[in-house]
Every structure is written in structure tokens, then in C-alpha cells.
Amino acid sequence: MRRAVVVVCALLCVTSCGRGGAADGDSGRLPGAPTGVTAAAGSATSVHVMWNALPAGSGVRAYEVYRGTTKVDEVPGSQHMVEVTRLRPSTVYVFTVRARGGDGSLGPRSRAVRAGTPALVTADRSAPTRPAHPRGRAVGSRAVQLSWGASADDRAVLSYDIYQGDAQIHSVGGNQTATVVTGLRPGTRYVFTVRARDASDNLSPASAAVRLTTPGSGDGRGTAPTGFTAQSHEEAGAYYLDLAWDPPRVDGVVTEYRIQLDGGTTTSLVWGGTPPKGRSTYSFYVGRDHGVVHHVRLRARLPDGTWGGWSAERAVTTGS
């Protein structure tokens, strides 16, 4: 069972059922070593590790991230960035990445990269200044290039976080004032902002928004959860709705859903930790009245920070 943090509603039970089978591609091929691995401190106790995706057809099911010889994280093959936390200030760490194939075999390690965490300044409550004059342009149908003016801080800017809407989707080191954001969707309108962060995790105000549209056809098909079902059950005189769905098949990991009840009230469901890889279920309280008809649907926040399409709407009667 995996925990989920529920915003607006009380914490309720979330379960998932794993789905077997190898990832798409040649599951019998040993994946190669990931390339383009970089590591940069995000704070005095965290480091961002990023790498390039292996080519399509490599049979990659997951990536494993190592600190020295210790495995610190494993993410699905569609994810190419992790934040390694609970590190020590003023310490140099060495990171490598390995790809896992569809049959479970591990490929060779990437080249090792080093990142040093800065000293922790507990008395620092001064945030960096707002990044100035952000600009951007589309570079193909699935990527954009962003740039901005450097922020100032009373000590030092450690990193810049890139947001799409209110979702952080990328991060670079404090010595960078430009980056390329990949994994976007064709024909989609995006709103990017940049925030600067110092070693004490003080965040600057958001920069002015950069509005860009990627070229190509973006009809939104394939972004809605599928196989959505809803039913009611009674427990101790109260009624609950039991939802089940398959996540949309998108390039990245879905960690947040928005549930809409009766066309108005919405609840945010945020996975605490690794989200389910297969079918997911969620139950929530809807009252104590028998025979009430509820209409419910949900949608996912996609890895590029946008909201996907709504699932089919289901009508459920309490006590039915």
C-alpha cells in the first residue's frame, strides 16, 4: 500500500495493483549506460541529478540512481531527473545512473559526476531577488529553450527552479541562466516562470511569465485516465465512493490527480512517494444519506505541468 497526501479532504485509503509485464521495446536487450548525467546542489541537503533518455527501443523499464555504491532512488524509464535529499552540508558526493531493462537486467553505470553541497546557514532568512527578463522559444514540438537574468542573494544563488503553472518541472545550478526543457507535448500552450533558491531553501518571487506554444498537433488525446470506474459502499452508516482507474500513458510520472464531484467540488490527490505503476484505487466519504446520485470524474497533472483530459464521468447512487 502506498500513502497519498489528500489536499482539501481528510487522508483516506489509497491502494494500487501492480501490473506485470516488460516495458515497451526489446526486453531482452541489455540497456546501455545513460549519457549526459549532471548533478547540482539544490540546497545544503539536496542534489538534483539529471540525465538524457536512452533511445526509444532500448527496452528501458527504469533508471537507478546511486550515491557512491549506495542506491538512493529508482524511477520509471520515462523519468530523467531525481532530487536526492537528506544529504550532509559541506560534503562532496559522487553520483552514477544505471538503466534497468524490461527483463530486470541492469546496464553499465554512467560516468560518475560530482556535486558538493554548500554549508548550511541557519540564520539566513533572506530570499534571492526575482529572476529578471525571462525569455523563451520553442525548439521543436517537444522542447523549449528558456533564459533569464541572474538573481542576487546576500550569500549565493544555489539553483533555479523552472515552473509550468504552479508545478516545478525542472531545475538547474545557480551558475546557469538558461536551459532546455524537454518532455513537452506538441501543439500545447505553456506558461513558464523561474524562481531562484539559496542554500537555506529560501525561494525568490517568481519571474515574469514566459508564454510559449509548441508547434504541431495537440488534440489532448491520450492524456485522460482510462478504465475509470466508480461504485458506492457503506461502512458504519456512512457512504463512500470507490474509484479505480489506469493512469494515462504519457512521457513521465503522474503524481497528482484532481477529482471532481457533482460538477463543482474538487479534491487534489497527491501521491506521497512513488506513485502506482498500474491500476490505482481511491475511496472517499460522501455522506450518510441513502439513494443520493453523485457524478464523479478525474484528471491527471501531467509531467510537463499541464492538466490532462478528464476521464469519463460516472454516476453512482449511494447504497446501490
Rank of each mutant, 00 (worst) to 15 (best):
Thr281Tyr: 15
Val191Ser: 05
Leu30Glu: 04
Arg86His: 11
Arg155Tyr: 12
Val37Glu: 01
Val254Glu: 01
Leu30Ala: 07
Ser283Asn: 09
Val7Asp: 10
Leu120Ile: 08
Ala23Ser: 13
Thr266Gln: 05
Gly140Ser: 06
Gly216Asn: 02
Val250Leu: 05
Pro303Met: 00
Leu241Asn: 03
Leu158Thr: 13
Ser159Asp: 09
Pro131Arg: 13
Gln176Met: 12
Pro247Met: 09
Val296Gly: 07
Ala115Thr: 00
Ser27Glu: 08
Gly278Arg: 06
Leu87Asn: 04
Gly216Glu: 09
Ala230Asp: 00
Glu83Arg: 12
Ala209Trp: 13
Asn175Lys: 11
Val75Trp: 03
Arg137Val: 15
Gly222Leu: 01
Leu184Lys: 05
Gly136Ser: 00
Thr281Val: 06
Arg301Val: 10
Val191Leu: 08
Thr281Ile: 05
Ala56Phe: 13
Leu302Tyr: 11
Val72Asp: 06
Gly220Asp: 01
Arg135Cys: 09
Ser126Met: 06
Ala62Leu: 12
Ile162Tyr: 11
Gly287Leu: 00
Arg249Leu: 06
Ser283Gly: 02
Gly32Gln: 12
Val121Arg: 11
Thr96Pro: 09
Thr179Asn: 10
Asp161Phe: 13
Arg125Ile: 10
Asp242Asn: 10
Arg249Ser: 08
Val254Ala: 05
Asp73Ala: 14
Val97Asn: 02
Val75Arg: 03
Ile169Val: 15
Val250Glu: 03
Thr255Met: 10
Val254His: 08
Arg279Cys: 05
Ser126His: 14
Gln168Trp: 12
Thr69Asn: 13
Tyr190Thr: 04
Gln168Val: 15
Asp219Pro: 04
Ala112Val: 11
Lys277Val: 14
Gly264Val: 11
Ala167Leu: 14
Pro31Glu: 11
Pro55Gln: 00
Arg61Phe: 03
Ser171Phe: 05
Gly264Gln: 13
Ala115Pro: 00
Cys9Gly: 14
Tyr285Asn: 06
Thr318His: 03
Leu212Ile: 14
His48Pro: 05
Gly237Met: 02
Ala99Ile: 13
Trp245Tyr: 00
Ala236Gly: 03
Leu87Met: 00
Ser159Phe: 03
Leu302Gln: 12
Ile169Asn: 04
Asp289Gly: 11
Leu158Asp: 11
Gly220Gln: 00
Ala208Pro: 06
His294Lys: 03
Val14Phe: 15
Ala150Met: 03
Val139Phe: 07
Ser232Gln: 04
Ala152Ile: 10
Val172Ser: 09
Thr69Arg: 13
Arg299Tyr: 05
Pro34His: 01
Ser141Tyr: 07
Cys13Gly: 08
Ala238Arg: 14
Leu241Arg: 02
Gly116Val: 03
Gln231Met: 12
Val47Asn: 03
Val139Trp: 06
Ala40Lys: 15
Gly319Phe: 09
Ile169Met: 14
Gly107Met: 04
Ser16Trp: 13
Leu243Ser: 02
Arg195His: 08
Thr70Val: 10
Ser217Asp: 12
Gly136Glu: 01
His294Glu: 01
Ser141Leu: 05
Arg130Ser: 09
Ser141Ala: 15
Thr317Gln: 15
Ala112Gly: 12
Trp307Asn: 04
Arg111Pro: 12
Ala236Ser: 10
Asp246Arg: 11
Asp73Arg: 11
Gly18Ile: 09
Ala62Glu: 08
Arg100Phe: 07
Leu11Lys: 08
Phe95Glu: 01
Thr214His: 13
Thr117His: 03
Gly101Ser: 11
Pro248Asp: 02
Glu83Tyr: 04
Gly107Trp: 05
Ser204Tyr: 04
Arg130Leu: 07
Gln164Asp: 13
Val286Ala: 02
Val172Thr: 06
Trp307Lys: 02
